[in-house]
Simulated assay, not measured.
Amino acid sequence: MTPGPQDGLVAQWWATAVSRIEPGIIELREHPVQDLIGTTTFVETIWLLLRGELPRPEQAKLLEAALVAGVDHGPQAPSIAAARMAATCGVGLNSAVATGVNMLGDVHGGAGQQCVELLDEIARQHDQGGEFELAVAKVIGEWQARSRYLPGFGHRFHPRDPRRDPLLTLVDRAVTDGLVTGAHLRAARAVETHLNLGREGKKPVPMNIDGATAVIYAELGFAAPLARGLFVLSRSVGILAHAWEETGQGRRNKSPMPPSMIPVHLVVPTPRA
Results as ranks from 00 to 15, higher is better:
108 H>M: 04
81 A>H: 14
91 V>R: 01
85 M>T: 11
126 H>E: 12
93 L>E: 14
96 A>Q: 02
135 A>G: 03
94 N>H: 13
132 F>G: 01
87 A>W: 00
119 L>T: 09
84 R>G: 13
126 H>Y: 15
104 L>I: 13
131 E>C: 04
99 T>S: 09
84 R>D: 11
124 R>F: 08
95 S>A: 15
88 T>N: 02
125 Q>E: 15
86 A>R: 14
122 I>R: 07
124 R>W: 05
80 I>E: 08
130 G>S: 13
137 A>Y: 04
134 L>Y: 07
99 T>R: 01
129 G>S: 13
90 G>C: 02
130 G>R: 10
88 T>Q: 07
137 A>R: 13
115 C>Y: 14
105 G>W: 10
137 A>L: 09
120 D>V: 09
117 E>T: 15
96 A>T: 00
82 A>R: 10
118 L>V: 13
136 V>R: 00
88 T>P: 09
104 L>E: 05
88 T>M: 08
133 E>R: 11
106 D>P: 08
110 G>V: 12
95 S>F: 09
137 A>N: 03
101 V>M: 10
88 T>Y: 01
84 R>I: 14
100 G>Q: 03
123 A>Y: 11
110 G>I: 02
90 G>E: 01
81 A>F: 13
97 V>S: 03
133 E>S: 14
107 V>T: 09
134 L>M: 13
120 D>G: 08
84 R>S: 14
126 H>L: 03
131 E>Y: 10
98 A>N: 02
80 I>A: 14
101 V>T: 08
137 A>K: 09
107 V>E: 07
109 G>H: 00
119 L>K: 14
